[in-house]
Design a protein around this nucleic acid. Structure first.
Lengths: 241, 241
DNA sequence: CGACGCCTTGAACGATGTCAACGTGCGTGG
DNA sequence: CCACGCACGTTGACATCGTTCAAGGCGTCG
């Protein structure tokens, strides 16, 4: 999956980048020390509160970001207010569409989010100079396309129960990818309304399906946001896989 | 939108490529005469009947293709047979995921389709040697991602009537992009069942919504496959735009 | 002519949406 | 500390939209 995975911890690495996950699994992993330094000189690190808008639908792109931590939701809205979340992005995803001036979705922090942002011009110059970087971006874009198409199947053909189970599974695997055992425990990164907007349902239906899953002992709901899954494979069956 | 658009009609251009639309608007547009010649020597042109499978879900990729004419549908299927079409591709789209070995969707000819196919190895070597080609592929992949996300909004949040109108609009704009007037007339590239699988509906619902549009005089249905739209903007309103 | 594929139409059913009431946790101000 | 309001989530009753199942129409090909 990863095109290249250098683990160079040499002294060239800028201080800002040393502890950053993008340095390894993200786009920055294909840059050499000199490039990283150049990029880091023009990058700023910010922490965003939940609900902060990073960029709006059909606005101009001015900068790109790497997600250091947290979850960003990408959404589209219709004229009458109906909304659909069309993707979630996790660390160390790259946020923004290189060489496009217009955004086609709006990006908003779902949880508290840390990002590392750079100017559009600089990153585009570096992409043009660095084939590995361009390859890496193509790779991530293909991944996003795969995920979008997977979700189209979920939106178009799954029942409400299967949709909710699919969502839980998505969060379990993406936000906590290293968990390998049968059971798993995690915090939902978003509200019931957001989940509904992601699944093409109403908040009420999401709520009902969650209690149904709870009553079947497929999940346990600790704190509205905190969920335990005793047996992932049983959840997986419910999701239609 | 297009990264580069050369219109070189020099004598280097291989005979096979001279009349091909990909030569201008497609990926081949960024290749020079020598490269085109090399590629054309290892490419084969085929005509496929409707229903022919080009590649299966979760099979290995062995070759890539350009679509010369016709419509290809990309779909995913669940274990119990539920199906969702996750994208349509038109000429001069590039078909296949560079540098991926696994397919994530199945590709099938919706109409009669002409393709120009090349071996995976050759095209990947050319991509690596030609930054413009890689850029062009990134560009197309971003376009597909945009379309996938647009369709997620349709699948998740639109009513059956809006979905059918959106579909008609999609075909009108993609299969016949040059039509600029108020009215438009075209053949649907697929059956009612396929349309239903694209919209996340049943065949019956698609049929009912089509007759509803017909009774409102928003469309006229000539021959089950052949449709006339007297006023595109009225259709557009019905689609929720 | 009959059989078949594809589409349309009708009637009944069921899943999800809508609307409204109620519960729960949390911060604020008395 | 309690009382209150507020945001968020749950639950219930009912309405609605889309599905399901079944019948029938229309064009094509033997």
């Amino acid at each position: 999956m990863d095109i290249q995975r250098k683990d160079v911890h040499n002294s060239d690495t800028p201080a800002l980048c040393r502890a950053c996950e993008s340095r390894h699994r993200g786009v920055c992993g294909v840059l050499n020390g000199e490039q990283l330094l150049r990029l880091s000189k023009h990058s700023t690190r910010r922490t965003l509160e939940p609900g902060t808008e990073l960029s709006g639908e059909s606005t101009k792109t001015t900068s790109y970001s790497n997600i250091i931590s947290g979850v960003v939701k990408l959404s589209k809205m219709m004229a009458d207010g109906r909304q659909q979340i069309v993707g979630l992005q996790f660390a160390p995803d790259f946020l923004g569409r290189p060489f496009r001036t217009e955004n086609s979705v709006s990006a908003e922090a779902a949880t508290e989010v840390q990002v590392c942002s750079f100017s559009k011009n600089l990153i585009e110059r570096m992409i043009s100079e660095t084939p590995e970087l361009e390859r890496k971006l193509l790779d991530q874009t293909l991944n996003e396309l795969d995920e979008a198409r997977d979700w189209m199947l979920t939106l178009g053909r799954k029942t409400a129960g299967e949709k909710v189970a699919s969502f839980l599974l998505l969060i379990a695997t993406h936000a906590f990818p290293d968990n390998e055992g049968d059971s798993i425990e995690f915090d939902l990164p978003m509200s019931r309304v957001d989940i509904a907007d992601f699944l093409g349902l109403t908040m009420e239906t999401v709520s009902r399906q969650l209690t149904k899953l709870r009553k079947q002992d497929i999940i346990r709901i600790v704190n509205n946001r905190h969920v335990t899954v005793p047996d992932i494979s049983r959840l997986s069956e419910w999701a239609g896989y």
